[in-house]
């Protein structure tokens, strides 16, 4: 898959939306952990535009968010976000949603796929990197990761699916003239 102009722009706009949601639309729930909607949008963009766009939106969006908050880039979680985007890009078949195809099976596939993606990123990648880079205690980072991961998954499953459904309705199917 090539990184064409549309994907470049999708990366940029996706990162801007991710940033906005992370920076201004959040509900704090636990020590330095917020419940936010940006992962629903990340899952949506990754499903529509593929893994590379997903990876870059996670990376750029999260890094810009950290910088704008002024707390320096917390690399372990930035990388975890990038992993979410990358893996989420593999859930749906490339270009399928853009062709207006998103049925019940696709929705189930997206939800189950998201569960795996978020479990891997927040249950494994983020805490392990926290321990590796910042030598934080294991209990703390796993609890933080699981809480954030659960919230992110729930929003991605509900909001992301609705976004995909809405988007697929606006697309023209390839054989619609036949």
């Amino acid at each position: 898959m090539n990184f064409n102009i549309k994907r470049i722009v999708a990366t940029a706009i996706g990162a801007a939306v991710f940033f906005l949601l992370a920076r201004f639309v959040s509900i704090p729930i636990f020590a330095n952990t917020n419940l936010t909607l940006q992962y629903a949008v990340l899952g949506f963009f990754a499903a529509v535009f593929g893994p590379i766009v997903g990876l870059l939106i996670g990376l750029i969006g999260h890094a810009l968010t950290d910088l704008a908050f002024g707390w320096g880039i917390w690399w372990s979680w930035v990388i975890a976000s990038a992993v979410v985007g990358l893996l989420a890009g593999f859930i749906m078949k490339a270009g399928k949603v853009e062709d207006g195809i998103f049925g019940k099976i696709d929705a189930v596939r997206f939800v189950i796929g998201s569960l795996i993606v978020h479990a891997v990123s927040w249950g494994v990648v983020a805490p392990c990197l926290d321990i590796l880079i910042y030598a934080e205690p294991a209990d703390k980072v796993f609890v933080q990761g699981l809480i954030a991961g659960a919230g992110n998954f729930v929003f991605t499953a509900i909001v992301g699916t609705l976004l995909l459904l809405g988007y697929s309705k606006t697309r023209v199917k390839p054989e619609s003239l036949e």
Partner: peptide, 28 residues
């Protein structure tokens, strides 16, 4: 609050997708 935010999120995402079309055409 969550419901309210969703009624903002959907138009925001779809208007962003329109922006993507427009900008990528201009760049092309």
């Amino acid at each position: 609050r969550v419901g309210g935010i969703l009624t903002i999120l959907f138009p925001l995402v779809f208007s962003s997708l329109d922006k993507i079309e427009m900008i990528s055409n201009a760049m092309e």
